[in-house]
Design a protein around this nucleic acid. Structure first.
Lengths: 214, 214
DNA sequence: TAGATTGTTAATCGATTAACAATC
DNA sequence: TAGATTGTTAATCGATTAACAATC
């Protein structure tokens, strides 16, 4: 029942293929074989071919893959041929950083607004957008056909805000709050749990030490 | 040869266990069974027991697990009983956000310095630290026993800076630059590729639509 | 055509789940 | 003791790798 039956393991690798193919393209390289990609990316050629063939036959036997074509196809698979209206909820350090970063615009993620519940921030301009109060969130999402909300708020508000967003028909939540969100199956959540990531790092640092020396 | 033989799949789940156990602890709950945790966390009880038993028998038959004890043990496994000296390289929006965020201090990650190659930023104070020029990086890492470097710089500098850090004996790199780093096996890298994460989100948004309606 | 490399099937490996004996 | 729940072994499932026939 879960969409299409392509595993998240495969999906998780697509952006990396996309990045490497983009680099090859920028270098003016026209074709690449799974073996060459394998050498560059340090994954097996077999996995590369299997991954691509989940989505169709992008290559030509005896030749390999056309870089630009494959790049385009993977971009389409990832939905990068479309634009997405995006808002940021939480105008703290991280929210502002993401708003300003927005290299994302290049990929079709259009920054449409930023919200906070701190009145001291209302009206402050971030990347040409005034910070709006949370009470305007619902109507804004509806009226501006917002697809994606970025949650950079404390975890104790995140659950509640997520519910509100779901009610207004949001389709994706990019969740930086350190809490698991429960949403219906037609709403996608992608978590970025920074502290979890940092803990994995210390685990690996430690484990290396205790195992090899120290 | 790879350390200890505990899979990254298991390690990736540890921070989440740690978080839920912390919450139970804060609620004053003393014991929990794998089945109860299973209900809360939406993973199988079997997986929970398997995961924990990679590191030893933390429970008691017929009783379950003591929340506080288990919380502490997982913390130790993750290396949170130790402190780590950390610097941030790149004082742009994201670097500043992470410096200020530093809820991390609570977990033993001590913010020791921040670097940038933009002279306009030198001397600016971020969280009581002056932004230092990159040319001071090497000596700083050595002299202050820095364990972890956070890379929030553009990808074209990241590879080079990583090499420098490796030379000075860094043990972990928390990499926000959109590039894969090649380091020796005694240096751990944890990648946070934000744009990859966002692409996974759009993939899933799209996939749902095309598969169910639209 | 001969050579190369894909697409795809089959084999292997690893991770998850189920089952149950050990034991608190 | 009886009941509960772990620790652990065995079974299943899924993902990765290897192999090779199809074909450009």
């Amino acid at each position: 029942m879960e969409n299409k039956g392509i595993s998240q393991a495969v999906i998780g690798r697509l952006p990396r293929y996309f990045r490497y193919l983009g680099e090859l393209k920028d270098q003016g390289i026209e074709r690449v074989s799974s073996q060459e990609l394998s050498d560059i990316m340090k994954v097996t050629a077999s996995q590369i071919r299997q991954d691509f063939n989940n989505f169709g036959g992008f290559g030509q036997q005896g030749y390999g893959y056309k870089v630009e074509y494959l790049y385009g196809e993977i971009g389409k698979i990832l939905g990068l041929d479309q634009t997405h209206n995006l808002i940021i909820i939480g105008a703290g350090n991280l929210g502002q950083a993401l708003a300003n970063y927005m290299n994302f615009e290049r990929r079709g993620f259009l920054f449409r607004g930023i919200f906070d519940n701190n009145p001291a921030l209302y009206g402050r301009r971030i990347r040409d957008m005034e910070v709006l109060p949370m009470k305007e969130l619902s109507s804004f999402v509806r009226e501006n056909a917002i697809d994606i909300a970025v949650l950079t708020i404390p975890k104790n508000c995140a659950v509640e805000v997520a519910e509100e967003l779901v009610k207004e028909g949001i389709r994706g939540i990019w969740n930086f709050a350190h809490v698991d969100l429960n949403v219906p199956p037609d709403v996608q959540v992608e978590n970025v749990h920074l502290s979890d990531s940092l803990m994995k790092l210390t685990y690996n640092i430690n484990r290396y030490e205790t195992h090899y020396d120290a």
